[in-house]
Structure formats: structure tokens, C-alpha cells
Amino acid sequence: MVRFLRYRQENWKRQRAIDGYIVDFFCYSARLVIELDGSQHYTEEGEEYDSIRTEVLERYQLEVMRFLNSEVDRNFDYVCLAIEEKVRERTGSPF
């Protein structure tokens, strides 16, 4: 994922702190957060924590996209396409 985002027109940051939370990837111009989730995110506690965290991030007009780690491994092209489409939607410019 790092290689995919590194060579994009948009300026992506990895492991960015936002209001006390560390997000996996952040694009300021698209106001977009990408989270790559492991199995711990799908426990009751993990889902509650992520819900609160997403609410906090949305207060900054950020959109959060979540992908399972396994989804990235098995269907990398789909994940990249989904991110490209969201960036286009949020910025109005090609990715």
C-alpha cells in the first residue's frame, strides 16, 4: 500500500496523528483517511473503539475508508481502485 500511495499526485502521509489517534494513511487534499484493519478491529471492543474514532475524525470533515488486511492481500487492485475513485470524488481531480 505504501508504494501505491507514494507515487500519487496527492500528498499522502503514513502514520499521521490526528486528535490523539494515529491513522494508517492520510491525504490532506482529499480529506481522506485509509485504515487497514486486522482481526482485532472486528471484536466488540474493536468495533466500538473504531466507531468512536471515526466520529472524532469526521468532526474534521475527514472521510474514513476501511479495508481488511486480508482484502488488501487478496484484492489489491480493487482496494487501489476504490481509493482512486474516492480521491477523485473528494477532490474533483484525477488521481
Rank of each mutant, 00 (worst) to 15 (best):
E63G: 01
R90D: 01
A30I: 12
F95M: 02
E47P: 01
E85H: 10
E48L: 09
R90H: 03
K13I: 02
S51Q: 13
L81W: 15
L36P: 06
G46K: 07
R66V: 08
R59G: 09
T91S: 10
R14W: 01
I34S: 02
I83A: 09
Q9H: 12
E89C: 01
M65W: 05
E71R: 06
F76D: 02
H41R: 08
R3L: 08
N11I: 13
D73H: 05
E63Q: 12
R88E: 13
E89I: 01
L57D: 03
V64E: 07
N75K: 15
S29V: 14
V72K: 01
G20M: 08
V64I: 13
S93Q: 12
Y78N: 14
N69F: 04
H41E: 08
E55Y: 06
S29L: 10
M1Y: 04
E44N: 04
I83W: 04
F25T: 05
S39Q: 15
E45G: 14
R8F: 02
N75F: 10
S29Y: 07
K13C: 05
V23E: 04
I18K: 09
Y21Q: 03
Q40N: 14
Y42G: 09
Y49D: 03
R6D: 07
S29T: 15
M65L: 15
E45H: 10
V64G: 09
Q40V: 13
S29F: 06
V87P: 00
S39N: 15
S51G: 14
R31T: 05
R53S: 04
L36V: 15
N75M: 13
E84Q: 13
K86A: 11
R8Y: 02
V56G: 05
E89V: 02
F95E: 00
L81C: 11
R16C: 05
E63L: 11
V79K: 06
S39H: 15
A82L: 15
E58Q: 09
E71I: 00
E71G: 02
C80V: 11
R53T: 03
D77L: 15
R66M: 07
P94W: 04
G92S: 03
L57G: 02
E84S: 13
D19P: 00
L81P: 00
D77F: 12
S93R: 14
R88D: 01
S70T: 13
V72A: 03
F95D: 00
H41Q: 11
T91N: 08
E84P: 01
A17W: 15
I34E: 03
K86Q: 10
E85Y: 02
E35D: 10
F76V: 12
K13P: 00
N69Q: 12
C27V: 05
R3T: 11
E55A: 12
E63D: 10
E71S: 06
I52N: 09
I22E: 02
F76P: 04
T91P: 02
L36E: 08
G92L: 03
V2T: 13
T43R: 09
R59P: 00
R74L: 11
V33D: 05
D37M: 15
S51T: 13
V72S: 04
E84L: 10
R66K: 10
Y7I: 08
Y78G: 09
R53E: 02
C27E: 08
R31Y: 06
D73W: 07
S93Y: 03
D19S: 13
F95P: 00
E63P: 00
V64T: 13
Y28V: 05
G38D: 15
N11E: 14
G46H: 06
F95G: 00
Y60G: 01
R14C: 06
Y49E: 09
L68Y: 12
E48Y: 03
